[in-house]
Design a binder for these strands. Structure first.
Length: 898
RNA sequence: GCGGGGAUGCCGGAGCGGUCAAACGGGACAGGCUUAGGACCUGUUGGCUUAGUGCUUGCGGGGGUUCGAAUCCCUUUCCCCGCACCA
């Protein structure tokens, strides 16, 4: 048995020595940018990574062989919390920890045969890299895209840092899953909301993104059109503004809820008897906020604050409540409540005995407030709505909105769920924010020429507080403006900043005048295929899109969207569950490589499931892949003496040789198409079938040139999946150069139609059929025979048959393919109808072999008479024994005789 | 609740109007090679069968469109995955 590990080491070395995967811009060649989401360098690679890279590498290799100039880089998302936690726990330097991991991981990637251009490696913790984070930050600051504000922020007490909205999942920290608290802090933000509209609109341009990712982004941006309505408060000069997308319901308002944090709450209750109770209520809500406020099933809680507002539409006075279901974050923090037509309002109104007022009613019945058990939220007709009565409610939204603007009650408004991106992190291992706080000058940016602001080494990792604050040399500094005493910003940037533009850096990784070389970016961008996990559907992919647009507006690049096509790979599971340490179902890629070699691991991963689907890890399956590799390898090795690379002499070929060449051309076609549509597992299954056929062929009396061609082709088409072994076999059959750089085979269309095996037998059957039919209708020599051939692949045989009949019987033969044609204009049918015979006296006859089908044919009569433009008589149902007797074939063509 | 994706032979998983009893792999069974096999090769693998290019059942359940449905439509059940009191 072949030693696959020896083979892989040999070729890895050869590739490295020749540097065959390095690329440079080449305007003469078509480019292809293939990118995998760069990994966080944790201690070990897991199979998910392996899958990611196997997919990307197969594609990169395929494109390379197809003549593309392929940019296929790798780098590391090297900043981040785990390094810092390791520092606290094991007293190691986060940098060393990170760099050691990178070394180990890149070693594994090389061992797996990934064809990266390693010269373009990026590590986000390199000052050469994060310098440009700082540079971009300063540019954003200039443009007003970065700003500092005090606000209530998400705080993770376990990670001891604030989090962006995108990093809070169901009230929990995305990383450590502990509950997120709210804190009032002054922090740095990126103004992603400025691009909300464009980010939303351009989702439509992302044609090759998975639908669900696009949907998730749309939902996250959460654009909602509506109106902002101002309400006067009775006995006060204050106004409350509310946002609603349901202007059609304004006549049904019976109360209002405002968020407890709403600034007006204090004002309105000050000095009233409600003041104390309201304060108490707010305290209560804050306490439960974290856990319960996010639980939708919970009872809504609220409280009257002693004030009323006036509904400008009907001048009614309604009470104002504070309630925990109103969130300050969205809209104006106040909600006009229409309990009859909003379920949340309905529940609240029922609980606090607030009035209901129906303003929309279904067409077929009447709604009664007293009988309602839930809000009516479907379409209907407006009632109790003054001049708008009788309108359809959807149409009324538009009319009432106009009315609101005309009367000055409010204005149209658009709301987004997306918030500005909070990028400050109270952690050490990240890009320092290039800002200084001066006693005199306030917030002062570091001048560009002083970048990078380096991370200091003299910090203490105590496990509490931001380690950066322990570095005096870092914190204490001079103001760049006045040279006076100043304090340096100790927050670092969210690591998602690093990953928001790294794909641009790959285009010119060593460029030192700007984050990237505009020219290189113009050549390489955008990313033709991006591959990564679904978990980044919102976070990274949204940020990267935002960055691209912002950098474009800074004049740094010309593209609107960074990733042309996105493919999200499925999870790897084992024994029906996600791999996890606690379940003990983790597979270590290193073990697989050790036992089976890298090619087996790659082959299994790509074969076991389509890239986008879940992959069920199965040890027997791995072994199956291994078995195939051995079979493939020994097929070549055992028969290498029989291989000739000389040109095929087509005159010397027998039908078997021709048949083999035909399926080989088929193979090339299928594999090419399957790879292009990411159906790697199907491409591999095609090759498996082919290899087993070639195996059988090799035992026969073979044509050496043909055999050589078959073997060569199978090595070529397999090489994107199992590059090491293919390289070895390529050498074994004495082909020149690296198979990794060889040209992808092209298929010959004419060869695909080559006669399939067994065609003689089939022709024989058809001959019998014809004889039988002719006998049946008692004519020796019809003028014309028309064959309706149902299956495309049989078309070829009938061509031969045509020749034969025309010569031997002197009959004019016509062949028609019925499948595509009949489907279009009549949806006909070949399988059931075995034969149609049109007699000389112009009465068409139909012969069947089944009683059941006879019934069917009665129905078909119409279609047939139309198609054949003549009457139809069903002559007889041919019984199955008769069919058997004349050895009828299945899927036999319809035959028309004239 | 909203949105996205699923349900196919013993298992993983293709197929997405006729070439489908359903690719490919795994498993199982039989045979060969072998002293023997867990290695390799060959064949079988829904049921019935007078063994036929035969009949019959069948791609979550029910209904429909069609000459014809695993594939299209409706409905229903179950599973996964996102978001979530967004006004």
């Amino acid at each position: 048995m072949a030693d696959f590990n020896r083979i892989s080491k040999k070729w890895r070395k050869a590739w490295e020595e020749k540097g065959i995967f390095k690329v440079i811009e080449d305007s003469k060649k078509k480019k292809f940018y293939c990118l995998e989401m760069y990994p966080y360098p944790s201690e070990k690679l897991h199979v998910g990574h392996l899958r990611n890279y196997s997919i990307g590498d197969a594609l990169a290799r395929f494109k390379r062989m197809n003549g593309f100039n392929v940019l296929y880089p790798m780098g590391y998302d090297a900043f981040g919390l785990p390094a810092e936690n390791a520092a606290i726990k094991n007293k190691v330097d986060p940098e060393k920890w990170t760099l050691d991991n990178i070394k180990a991981i890149s070693e594994q990637q090389k061992a797996m045969g990934m064809s990266y251009d390693w010269d373009r490696k990026i590590q986000s913790c390199d000052p050469d890299y994060y310098k440009w984070n700082q540079w971009i930050f300063l540019k954003f600051l200039e443009k007003g895209l970065a700003y500092r504000k005090k606000s209530s922020v998400n705080w993770c007490s376990s990670c001891k840092t604030v989090l962006a909205n995108e990093q809070v999942e169901q009230g929990k920290c995305w990383r450590c899953k502990s509950l997120v608290e709210q804190k009032d802090l002054e922090q740095w933000y990126f103004k992603i909301t400025k691009y909300a509209d464009e980010l939303l609109k351009d989702i439509d341009k992302l044609e090759n993104w998975p639908e669900r990712v696009k949907t998730m982004q749309r939902n996250w941006i959460g654009r909602s059109e509506g109106v902002e309505i101002n309400f006067k408060i009775k006995n006060s000069d204050e106004k409350i503004s509310t946002f609603t997308s349901r202007a059609d319901t304004v006549y049904g308002i019976t109360y209002m809820v405002i968020a407890p944090e709403h600034p007006l709450v204090k004002k309105l209750t000050k000095g009233t008897k409600y003041e104390n109770d309201v304060k108490k209520f707010i305290e209560e809500v804050k306490k439960e906020e974290i856990t319960e406020r996010i639980d939708k099933t919970k009872d809504k809680k609220g409280m009257f604050i002693g004030k009323y507002f006036i509904n400008p539409f009907n001048k009614e006075e309604c009470p104002i409540y504070i309630a925990d279901y109103a969130v300050m974050d969205y809209g104006t923090g106040a909600v006009m409540a229409v309990p009859t037509h909003d379920q949340r309002d309905f529940e609240f109104a029922k609980k606090y005995n607030l009035p209901l007022k129906v303003v929309i009613t279904p067409k077929d019945r009447k709604l009664k407030e007293s009988e309602m058990t839930e809000a009516y939220i479907d379409e209907g007709i407006l009632v109790n709505s003054g001049e708008f009565n009788g309108l359809n409610n959807i149409k009324a939204i538009e009319k009432i909105s106009n009315f609101i603007e005309k009367k000055g009650f409010g204005k149209r408004a658009v709301n987004y769920k997306i918030r500005d991106w909070l990028i400050s992190r109270q952690r050490y291992w990240g890009t320092p924010i290039p800002i200084v706080y001066c006693e005199k000058c306030g917030i002062v940016p570091i001048p560009e020429k002083e970048l990078p602001v380096l991370l200091p080494k003299d910090v203490k990792f105590s496990g509490s507080g931001n380690p950066l604050e322990t570095s005096e040399s870092f914190v204490k500094c001079k103001c760049p403006k006045c040279k006076g005493k100043a304090r340096r910003e100790t927050d670092t940037m969210d690591t998602f900043v690093d990953s928001s533009w790294y794909f641009l850096r790959y285009c010119s990784p060593k460029f030192d005048k700007a984050p990237f070389d505009k020219k290189a970016v113009e050549y390489w961008m955008n990313v033709d295929q991006y591959i990564g996990g679904i978990e980044h559907a919102i976070l990274h992919l949204l940020y990267a899109r935002f960055f691209t647009k912002a950098l474009r507006d800074l004049g740094l690049c010309k593209i609107d969207e960074p990733f042309k096509r996105l493919m999200t790979q499925g999870m790897v599971i084992k024994d029906g569950a996600k791999m996890s340490k606690s379940l003990g179902n983790v597979v270590d890629p290193a073990d697989i490589i050790k036992d089976y070699g890298p090619d087996t691991a790659r082959l299994f991963i790509l074969f076991a499931a389509l890239p986008e689907k879940e992959l069920d890890w199965n040890d027997q399956g791995v072994n199956g892949a291994f078995k195939f590799l051995n079979r493939f390898y020994s097929l070549v090795e055992d028969n290498k003496e029989k291989i000739s690379l000389n040109k095929i002499d087509f005159k010397q070929l027998n039908s078997k040789d021709k048949y083999m060449l035909s399926i080989m051309n088929h193979l090339i076609k299928d594999v090419t198409e399957n790879i292009e549509s990411f159906k790697f597992s199907l491409a591999i299954s095609d090759v498996m079938q082919f290899v087993s056929q070639v195996g059988k062929y090799s035992n026969e009396n073979i044509n050496k040139e043909v055999f050589g061609e078959l073997i060569k082709t199978s090595i070529l088409v397999m090489s994107p999946f199992i590059p090491f072994i293919c390289e070895e076999l390529w050498e074994m059959i004495k082909c020149k150069g690296f198979v990794s750089l060889a040209e992808w085979p092209k298929y010959d269309k004419t060869m695909i139609d080559e006669k399939a095996e067994g065609s003689e037998e089939m022709l024989d059957n058809v001959r019998k059929d014809i004889a039988y039919l002719l006998n049946l209708i008692k004519i020796e020599k019809p003028k014309k025979l028309t064959f309706f051939v149902s299956e495309k692949w049989k078309y070829k045989f009938f061509k031969e048959l045509k020749k034969e009949i025309e010569q031997t019987r002197d009959i004019n033969v016509i062949i028609k393919s019925i499948n595509p044609k009949f489907k279009e204009n009549g949806k006909l049918v070949s399988k059931l109808v075995l034969s149609i015979v049109k007699t000389p006296n112009k009465i068409p006859r139909v012969i069947l072999n089944q009683d059941t089908e006879f019934k069917v044919l009665e129905k078909l009569k119409k279609t047939f008479t139309k198609e054949l433009k003549c009457d139809m008589v069903i002559v007889k149902a041919e019984d199955s024994k008769e069919a058997k007797a004349r050895n009828a074939m299945p899927g036999k063509p319809a035959i028309v005789v004239e």
